[in-house]
Amino acid sequence: MSEQEQPPELESRPQSRREWSGWLRSVVLPLGLVVAIVAALLYVQSGGGSSEDDGFGTVALPATKNVTAESPEASRDRAAPDFLLRQLDGGTLRLSDLQGQPVIVNFWATWCYTCRAETPDLIDLYEKHQADGLVILGVNLRENEGAVASFVQDFGISFPVVFDRTGEVATTWRIGGPNQGVPSTYFIDRDGVVRKVVFGLVTETLAAEGLSLILPSGAS
């Protein structure tokens, strides 16, 4: 047998062998595999990208209803982001349809102690200024309808309550974070512009400040 026909040296420790098979197979392919696995894990973790798009949630604010030169945002002097949500009584409500009236949007939940504490005061506020055209809109965050209905009945809430079932509106309005971000209250004037934002309890003083900015007669 000639030298070239001889078999190669016996691999005494074949398991320790590393074989350069070109950059594609030796580097890119394994790295791609790792990236694919991580991406798959993150995809599974995110719930598979499924969404419940039933038409409710954040909707585009019609340009004709945006009196500011900027895009809608849940912050002072910006047009309030629009939303379409189901009401407790079964109807639907779109925020931009309330333009022309001063509106207080209050994000709340029954599990929120501060929300429960401020509810009687919000009811009083609503009943006091309803004749001035004030609308208080309670946006309940992702809760069970039965529990909310029971709460609304017990506390005698007379202003409209809508459901943000998926939290989409909460995200748009930047509700969240480690403290859950509720209650959060937005005072919106007749043009649909946010004039005051209150994170936490709406005290009498804060309510008066907010109303003075959105009610034509101011707070009284």
Partner: peptide, 16 residues
């Protein structure tokens, strides 16, 4: 008590 929240209100896996 009302059902208490699990994870942030704006998180996809928010539960009560």
């Amino acid at each position: 008590e009302p059902a208490l929240p699990v994870f942030a209100i704006d998180a996809p896996d928010h539960m009560q």
